[in-house]
Design a binder for these strands. Sequence first.
DNA 1: TTTT
DNA 2: TTTT
Lengths: 165, 165, 165, 165
Amino acid sequence: MLNRVVLVGRLTKDPELRYTPNGVAVANFTLAVNRAFSNQQGEREADFINCVIWRKQAENVANYLKKGSLAGVDGRVQTRSYDNNEGRRVFITEIVAESVQFLEPRGSNQSGQGQGNQDFYGAPAGNDFANQRNQQSNRQSGGFNDDPFSNDGKPIDISDDDLPF
Amino acid sequence: MLNRVVLVGRLTKDPELRYTPNGVAVANFTLAVNRAFSNQQGEREADFINCVIWRKQAENVANYLKKGSLAGVDGRVQTRSYDNNEGRRVFITEIVAESVQFLEPRGSNQSGQGQGNQDFYGAPAGNDFANQRNQQSNRQSGGFNDDPFSNDGKPIDISDDDLPF
Amino acid sequence: MLNRVVLVGRLTKDPELRYTPNGVAVANFTLAVNRAFSNQQGEREADFINCVIWRKQAENVANYLKKGSLAGVDGRVQTRSYDNNEGRRVFITEIVAESVQFLEPRGSNQSGQGQGNQDFYGAPAGNDFANQRNQQSNRQSGGFNDDPFSNDGKPIDISDDDLPF
Amino acid sequence: MLNRVVLVGRLTKDPELRYTPNGVAVANFTLAVNRAFSNQQGEREADFINCVIWRKQAENVANYLKKGSLAGVDGRVQTRSYDNNEGRRVFITEIVAESVQFLEPRGSNQSGQGQGNQDFYGAPAGNDFANQRNQQSNRQSGGFNDDPFSNDGKPIDISDDDLPF
DNA sequence: TTTT
DNA sequence: TTTT
């Protein structure tokens, strides 16, 4: 059934890249998306939206985005649940990104060295991470957690079953 | 910033209509949205996506949708947090619906009496609940809960501050 | 770059299914999408939105949708141009559907015989035409036109180049 | 009915701002949206998508966006037709933008003088043009054309009837 | 009639 | 050239 989400926002932290036991890459990141309206105190708030992305694009996200990066996400809403360490069922709503667009001007990550690029404010060519299905990643898995958005060293129970395809 | 969600799914239960202390209507409902793909066991799962809607449209949702109704939602992703009764901060991700479309065939709610309507399977005219801003609802508030998706009779702490405009 | 469209509407006519010279299926159809608001004459107008869909899903659309069917489309906006028979360049904006959802109640196509189905108004299981990439269709091509939305028997010049991948 | 479009792309030209006979502002612009995939020649093409925006936001677009600006659009697909000067009916599909987001880094419009802004690449605060309904613009109308995307000095026949609300 |  |  129809399930579509499009977001533009900034990463609240560097993305977290991990691997399932089978070696499939997953990255998690949170987008801060500023609201278009102000609240009753006249402040403009933001929504902090958890996103997951799989496989090759997960590695792209980890390599090219960092805290503060402006990015666009096209994906879908996913819900899942897991039992936490107190034996309580926790429900998660997150966005599974199907493609991520890097919206920073080219070179904005650079540390300071000259750029000599007249295209400085342009979006990099080929900066979409979409349509890279069928690509496989095979590095070994590190510690994989029960909740991809926490990182507290608890035992692993997210498996390849969480792969959205 | 861009924040857009479109869903089509079925209500998992009747919508819950409540009123803020100021008399503003809010309805909560959950959409079961079937996934387009099957999991590794060959089953087609669903996402269970919590939605909120405000004001006149909240009352429309409460009046016209019920458990099992097929509906479309156009809205945005919202996150918020509250402190639960154990003093723990709980983070919520939900969809604020800006418009809801009733996708049931006309008359499918009817109890059995004849319809004599050749348009029986047609979508009802005017079945969009959109573009009804500026309408105000003023009924008195009933018990309002700390989490619009739970309903356990705990003290009220959602106020008009939660109004998304 | 981000380019996403989601529509729900009714087919204005039966879909048109054709095949490229290489045997790839394409279907064209127009969705009438009723506007959520009324015009200054108090009438509710509709937008008539041309859609294209490729491969296996094109055949599904042709087989399962017809004039009047309620359908959801998830896709992207595409523009292209061609030179018409007067040597004039014509610009086309249309929606390339990536998935189509059949929103008619189960059995609504039936000619009249009893159904005995308590789920009569339920959406059919498996009624999404999505995620069917990698499927190939190989029937022979019939007359393929210069504009997939016209059908006037003029020589073919839409080729597999128009395939959106 | 559901009708939602989200785009991110670059303006192909400066926006065109005009006023209806009643003094309502309208701006037209075209977004070049690069495709996520390459064609059979290995080139990455773009879609050139016509957009319209009304009222206060039209003036914002005219003031803040120009050829090459990176912008996000949230809106809906609209179709309409008009009779051209040869008496032929022309059908138009365009995007009615409901909000536009300015995605250029702050200061990228500047002519060259120093900026001394550590937030140089940050999106400007308040750079959404959304949620500004109810605002009225009253300047006098200049030449208004039969097709908002052409500009050939022909007599005016787009009126306030084209206002999408 | 196309942007970077 | 438009659906219910």
